[in-house]
């Protein structure tokens, strides 16, 4: 059993109705964490976060694991440890 701190922003905050919670689950990857959150708060969450045509994370979503973007790690297969902090963010950048 792994216990992690999860922060929700953007559409997830609206869907789940809170900005943070602790999640206890049997698993060790981001993918398994998403499954647990969907189980707790509804399947819409997985549908929004995963691009089922490619099996990858929705390109407009960033997940930070202890401050690191999981897209620079192993994306959905990135391993999670007890006590980790996970933040869900939209990809929004004005830029040029």
């Amino acid at each position: 059993m792994v216990k992690v701190k999860v922060f929700y922003t953007g559409p997830l905050k609206k869907l789940i109705g809170k900005t943070r919670e602790e999640v206890n689950f049997n698993g060790e990857t981001i993918s398994e964490l998403l499954r647990e959150i969907s189980k707790n708060h509804g399947e819409t969450i997985s549908k929004q976060l995963i691009d089922y045509s490619t099996g990858s994370l929705n390109e407009y979503v960033a997940i930070l694991l202890n401050g690191q973007n999981v897209k620079h790690l192993q994306e959905l297969k990135t391993r999670i440890r007890d006590g980790d902090e996970i933040i869900f963010l939209p990809v929004v950048a004005g830029g040029t």
Binding site: T54, S56, E59, Y60, A62, N69, K71, H72, V91, V92, A93, G95, T96
Partner: peptide, 24 residues
């Protein structure tokens, strides 16, 4: 798909955005 750049290395600081939100 667009693959984000972890550490941009360029003299064009204004364009050093590794994860381009409007790239697609």
């Amino acid at each position: 798909r667009i693959s984000p750049v972890k550490e941009p290395k360029t003299i064009c600081k204004s364009l050093a955005i590794g994860e381009p939100a409007s790239g697609k």
